[in-house]
Every structure is written in structure tokens, then in C-alpha cells.
């Protein structure tokens, strides 16, 4: 039984992670590299001269970008293990787990792991001002945990009270507030920051939809043997 969990998670995570890594290199990395030109001081926003919005960016870096793809695969394998653990609980309760339903699971995963924490701690472009990283990580984990419980209650709760509790769990971390910096010091133009957050969310949604479908597919496939 354990091998069914691990094998299906590794296949799903590696496949979704590889595709996501490539999507990130195409859509997110150029924005990140552009921001780093401001972070490192090569470009200066509101300096003496107007700066072109289309500077020449560093190209593909085998070491750096290769590591990124590997770490994306590892990250999504981690997510796949969690997702498949949750799917198996649901299947035990009589919910069918198929690749098509997996898309819905993937969207829920995106909401819990990307959108919920990102609603207040937006995906950060390099160079932004931010509060202490440990404090933000604690808030990140707490917000994700609350969102996971909330989405489970919405999906499987049997009374309207459950929906109410879910709404409180989803809203509470943002009403309490995330650790914020005392002052703003980000040197990166707001246009780049906004594009980065939008791209990170968009690629994240695509990643999770693929992960959900792959996870459900491999979970069933490994179960047949």
C-alpha cells in the first residue's frame, strides 16, 4: 500500500513538476531576471534618466535553470504526496478519484497552497521589502493549514455550519494579518512586481491542475496492479 502512495506521487509530481518548471522558465523567469537588474542596481527606477522597459536579459543558464527545474519537480512531488494522501482519505469515504475529478482537486490545492497565502503575502519579486522570513513562513504554514481544513469542510462537510466554519478559517489569517515590513524599500518598478505575481499565480494554477489530474490518474493506475 505504501508503494502505491509513493510511486503514484513520484510519477505525478515529476511529470507536473517538469512541465511546471518549463512554464516557469518561459513565463516567470524573464520577469524575475528583469527585477534582479533593479535589485542589483544595474537599472535604477526613477533615476536621472528614463529606463527602457525592455532591457537585454541574461539568457538560459544551465546550472541555475536546471536546478530550478529539479527543485520544481521535488516541490510538486511533495505536493503530490500530500494530495494523494488526502485523495485516499476521500476515496475511503466513497468519493471516486479519477483524472477528471483530479482537476478539481488540483484547483483546490492551488487555492490552499498558492492563492490563500498569496492573498496577503503576494508572490514576491526579488528585491521587495518584507518582514522577517521566519515570521512569514510561520504565517504561510498556518494559512495553508487553515485553508486545507476549510476546503475539506466545503467539499465534504454535511451541514451549513461547516461552510460557515470554512469561511471563518479562510478569512481569519488575512483579518489577523501577515507579517509586513515596517518600511517600503523595494527598488523594482511596480509594473514588474504586479506582472510577477500574476505570472506566479497563473503558472501555479496550471501546475496544480496538471498535478491533480496526474495524481488521480497514477493513483488509480497503481491501484489496478
Amino acid at each position: 500500500m505504501l508503494s502505491r502512495f509513493t510511486i503514484s506521487a513520484v510519477f505525478a509530481g515529476a511529470a507536473a513538476g517538469l512541465l511546471t518548471g518549463l512554464l516557469q522558465l518561459v513565463f516567470v523567469q524573464p520577469v524575475l531576471l528583469h527585477a534582479e537588474l533593479y535589485e542589483g542596481g544595474d537599472l535604477v527606477h526613477f533615476g536621472a534618466e528614463a529606463v527602457s522597459a525592455h532591457p537585454e536579459l541574461p539568457g538560459f543558464d544551465l546550472m541555475r535553470d536546471g536546478l530550478s527545474v529539479i527543485f520544481t519537480m521535488l516541490t510538486y512531488t511533495g505536493y503530490a504526496l500530500i494530495l494523494i494522501g488526502a485523495m485516499s482519505f476521500a476515496e475511503e469515504r466513497g468519493t471516486p478519484i479519477t483524472a477528471r475529478w483530479g482537476i478539481l482537486w488540483g484547483i483546490a490545492g492551488f487555492v490552499a497552497f498558492h492563492l490563500a497565502p498569496g492573498f496577503t503575502l503576494a508572490p514576491e519579486v526579488p528585491g521587495v521589502a518584507a518582514a522577517d522570513v521566519t515570521a512569514r513562513q510561520v504565517w504561510w504554514f498556518a494559512t495553508v493549514a487553515a485553508a486545507v481544513v476549510a476546503l475539506w469542510l466545503i467539499a465534504f462537510g454535511r451541514s451549513p455550519i461547516m461552510i460557515l466554519i470554512a469561511a471563518v478559517l479562510l478569512a481569519a489569517p488575512h483579518l489577523i494579518g501577515a507579517p509586513e515590513p515596517d518600511t517600503f524599500a523595494g527598488p523594482v518598478p511596480t509594473e514588474i512586481g504586479a506582472l510577477f505575481a500574476a505570472r506566479a499565480f497563473g503558472v501555479g494554477l496550471a501546475a496544480w491542475v496538471m498535478l491533480g489530474a496526474f495524481a488521480a490518474y497514477f493513483w488509480q493506475r497503481e491501484g489496478e496492479q
Binding site: 523567469q29 541555475r64 498558492h114
Partner: peptide
């Protein structure tokens, strides 16, 4: 936050929305 892990995973952490 170990330096080697942070550097290797840097771009992924930003792109995936983790506090980096």
C-alpha cells in the same frame, strides 16, 4: 534557509510564492 538550499531553490521559491 540553509544557504546552499536557498541558493539552489531561489528562483523556484519566488516563482512558487514561498516566503524566500
Amino acid at each position: 534557509q540553509a544557504a546552499a538550499l536557498h541558493d539552489a531553490a531561489h528562483d523556484v521559491r519566488h516563482a512558487t510564492g514561498f516566503p524566500c
